[in-house]
């Protein structure tokens, strides 16, 4: 009885203390190395705090959907989204805007990789012989690990992945896609080209066993998205200040968190292609 009351009280205090200070909170999709997510983005939080003169906090989340939900629920006001997650989030939060993207992001691409036992090699198109193999995507909500690869598979073969392949899996993230294809658990996989390049560079991939067989045409991907109601909560001009702070971020150490060369302005219409593709595939109503 007393224990119960105590606990409820404690919870209320905890909840109350969080209400007391209007902290500016942001998050990022957990697209790579989640163990480092907090360290990586803490530096960005410190930078933003200094630039915006208000308390800034980074919250790590576990899935693309959780990122979207946190943004939609106004528990975070700024998020580093992928193409698809950004489109979904903006659809759910009227007034929210894509404000900045990485220099590389307008021309992002996915790699299709194959285990060496398939005998496939790099080509201009996906070969017809992938019919009947096993295939893994990354996360279900990923642009480069799910949406665009699925789109191109449908484009080239006129079939859904389930019909085309013997088995279709979702590894959960890009690094695991590499591991699963390298071990031959799946014969094929599709992933974010930057994660692949970084893994190859770090010597984490045995390129004798797994290699890139096709790269997709480019598409717009990651971006910073801001909620539309910030000025009311954080003061006039806050949205502009956040936008400026993001765009002028040039410290290589900060940029390596993403990793991007730098940031350039973005707008919602830049991601129209992604939205169309998502609608076509049925990932968006």
């Amino acid at each position: 009885m007393f224990k119960m009351m105590f606990r409820v009280l404690a919870l209320m205090i905890l909840a109350g203390s969080a209400f007391a200070t209007p902290t500016f909170v942001f998050t990022a999709i957990p697209d790579q190395d989640e163990t480092q997510l907090k360290q990586r983005f803490q530096k960005v939080a410190d930078y933003l705090q200094q630039e915006l003169q208000t308390e800034v906090r980074f919250i790590p989340v576990k899935s693309y959907a959780a990122t979207i939900t946190a943004f939609r629920n106004n528990q975070v006001q700024l998020a580093w989204f992928g193409g698809l997650s950004g489109v979904k989030a903006r659809e759910l939060v009227p007034g929210s805007r894509a404000v900045a993207q990485g220099v590389e992001d307008p021309e992002f691409k996915s790699y299709f990789i194959a285990h060496q036992s398939t005998g496939l090699s790099a080509a201009d198109r996906l070969p017809q012989s992938i019919d009947g193999l096993t295939f893994t995507f990354g996360s279900k909500g990923s642009t480069s690990g799910r949406l665009m690869p699925e789109y191109h598979l449908r484009e080239q073969f006129g079939q859904s992945p389930d019909e085309l392949f013997k088995r279709v899996g979702f590894s959960g993230n890009h690094s695991r896609t590499i591991a699963l294809v390298e071990s031959g658990a799946y014969q094929l996989g599709a992933l974010n080209y930057k994660v692949w390049d970084a893994a190859v560079e770090a010597g984490k991939v045995d390129t004798a066993k797994v290699k890139v067989i096709w790269e997709t045409p480019t598409y717009p991907d990651y971006q910073w998205t801001l909620r539309g109601d910030l000025d009311a909560a954080y003061g006039e001009g806050f949205t502009d200040r956040v936008e400026q702070a993001l765009l002028k971020m040039n410290d290589p150490e900060l940029l390596s968190s993403f990793p991007r060369q730098g940031f350039i302005p973005a707008s919602n219409s830049d991601f129209e292609p992604v939205r169309k593709v998502a609608k076509q595939i049925g990932l968006l109503d």
Partner: peptide, 22 residues
């Protein structure tokens, strides 16, 4: 047990404020 039960609420972390509208 009493220490474990009484202590537990203090280690749940604070997380994000609840927005009841959600």
């Amino acid at each position: 047990l009493p220490a474990l039960f009484l202590g537990s609420p203090f280690f749940l972390g604070d997380g994000m404020p609840i927005v009841w509208g959600n």
